[in-house]
Computed example of a mutant assay.
Amino acid sequence: MTRILLYAPLALLAVIGQANAHSVKSEPAEAVDAAFDIIETRIAIKDETAIFSTRVRGAAGAEKPAATGKFEGSDVYAYVWPTSLDSAEIGFEAKQGIVALAVTFHPDFDDAANGGVNRDVWHPHWVVLAKDEACGGGLKVIDIPEGPKPKLPATWPGVPLLIDSPEYPTTFKGDAVDVEIPLHLIGGISGASYDGVTAGLKVNGNLHAPLLCVSDVFKVASGDLSLPGKVAPLD
Rank of each mutant, 00 (worst) to 15 (best):
M1I: 14
R3D: 14
L5H: 11
L5I: 02
A8F: 14
P9D: 08
L10S: 15
A14V: 09
I16A: 15
G17F: 07
H22W: 05
H22S: 04
H22F: 06
K25Q: 15
K25V: 15
K25T: 15
S26N: 01
S26Y: 00
A29T: 13
E30W: 04
V32T: 12
A34N: 12
F36P: 10
F36Q: 14
I38C: 02
I39C: 13
I39P: 00
E40F: 00
E40Y: 00
R42A: 12
R42W: 06
I43G: 01
I45H: 01
K46L: 09
D47P: 03
T49A: 11
F52L: 14
T54G: 08
T54E: 10
V56F: 01
R57T: 09
A60N: 02
A60M: 04
P65H: 07
F71E: 04
G73I: 10
Y79C: 11
W81N: 05
E89W: 02
F92H: 08
F92G: 09
E93V: 01
G97S: 01
I98R: 04
V99H: 02
L101E: 02
V103G: 09
T104G: 11
T104N: 15
H106Q: 12
D108Q: 02
F109R: 08
D111K: 06
R119D: 06
D120A: 14
W122R: 13
H123R: 06
H125K: 07
V127F: 09
V128L: 10
V128W: 00
L129P: 03
K131D: 15
K131S: 15
E133D: 15
C135T: 02
G136P: 08
G137A: 10
I142P: 05
I144T: 02
P145F: 11
K149H: 05
P150N: 05
K151D: 03
L152Y: 05
T155A: 11
W156N: 09
G158F: 03
V159K: 11
P160M: 05
L161D: 01
L162G: 00
I163A: 11
S165Q: 02
P166A: 08
P169F: 03
P169M: 12
P169V: 08
T170K: 06
T170A: 09
K173G: 12
D178I: 15
P182E: 07
L185Y: 00
G187D: 14
A192C: 04
Y194D: 09
Y194G: 03
D195G: 06
D195V: 10
G196F: 02
G200M: 14
K202P: 08
K202G: 15
L207V: 03
L207S: 11
A209Y: 07
L211I: 01
S215Q: 14
S215I: 08
D216Q: 14
K219E: 03
V220Q: 01
A221F: 07
G223Q: 07
S226K: 03
S226A: 12
S226H: 03
G229P: 05
G229D: 09
G229A: 02
K230M: 10
P233H: 03
L234D: 12
D235I: 06
D235K: 10
